[in-house]
């Protein structure tokens, strides 16, 4: 999952003086494949509301039998972890090797475990 709210405009870009037209909001689209278990993020699109986001997703993102179920989320509603905090967020899990079954050496005689 990559995108979230739009990044701030670069300060050297001129601002638009005209009143802003109401643009269709951006939606993130997730599709679950026919044999899949999870909805996977496939991209984004514009739609005026949630129902049309689903319809547009069907037309844009399922043309090649990509899936049988669609989730749409407003991009603005997606909350993401902060990339620069990757270290404290995720590295500590590396040191908890005992969470993995392979850490434990169970003799074969015990049978399947």
């Amino acid at each position: 999952m990559s995108s979230g709210t739009a990044a701030p405009r670069p300060s050297d870009e001129p601002t638009d003086e005209r009143p802003a037209r109401r643009e269709w909001p951006l939606w993130e689209i997730f599709i679950r494949g026919q044999h899949g278990l999870n909805h996977r993020h496939v991209g984004s699109l514009h739609a005026p509301d949630a129902a049309m986001a689903i319809g547009n997703a069907r037309d844009v993102y399922t043309r090649r039998n990509e899936g049988v179920s669609i989730w749409a989320v407003r991009s603005a509603d997606v909350v993401a972890s902060v990339p620069s905090e990757k270290g404290p967020m995720f590295d500590p899990a590396d040191a908890k090797v005992y969470r993995h079954p392979t850490f434990f050496d169970i003799p074969d005689d015990v049978g399947h475990m």
């Binding site: 269709w24 319809g55 547009n56 037309d59 043309r63």
Partner: peptide
């Protein structure tokens, strides 16, 4: 009138 519509119409 919009890219999404262009694609839907073609379908």
């Amino acid at each position: 009138p919009a890219l999404e519509e262009d694609i839907a119409l073609a379908n």
